[in-house]
């Protein structure tokens, strides 16, 4: 199979979503971008004629990992809200 414009677009999207997921300041946004990245990976596997991996990536890489990450994001957010009163982060910054 030869290279098509779709592959170029997919490659750009993969690198872009990975980059945005890593630099996003908000953990929730980073996680959603990572789920998008996982679904794009499933497409890449399908292009590499690896349907087995595409199935597993869509179900596990994007689905299950996404659920785990979102659960953790919610938990960490709740911990931060409960353990530090408003301005707690600033106080910690000042202590450095």
């Amino acid at each position: 199979m030869s290279l098509s414009p779709f592959d170029l677009l997919l490659a750009v999207m993969l690198l872009l979503t990975a980059w945005r997921a890593l630099v996003a300041p908000d953990p929730f946004r980073a996680t959603v971008l990572f789920i998008v990245f996982g679904l794009l990976m499933a497409l890449a596997w399908a292009r590499l004629s690896a349907p087995d991996i595409a199935l597993a990536e869509a179900a596990i890489g994007a689905g299950l990992t996404g659920a785990l990450l979102l659960d953790a994001v919610g938990h960490l957010r709740a911990v931060r809200r409960q353990s530090s009163p408003p301005g707690g982060d600033k106080a910690r910054e000042a202590a450095k």
Partner: peptide, 17 residues
């Protein structure tokens, strides 16, 4: 054909979640 224990397990796990 494409499929097998791992993909089936992933679908089962998704049902659990």
């Amino acid at each position: 054909r494409p499929g097998g224990a791992f993909q089936a397990a992933a679908v089962l796990a998704a049902a659990g979640v």
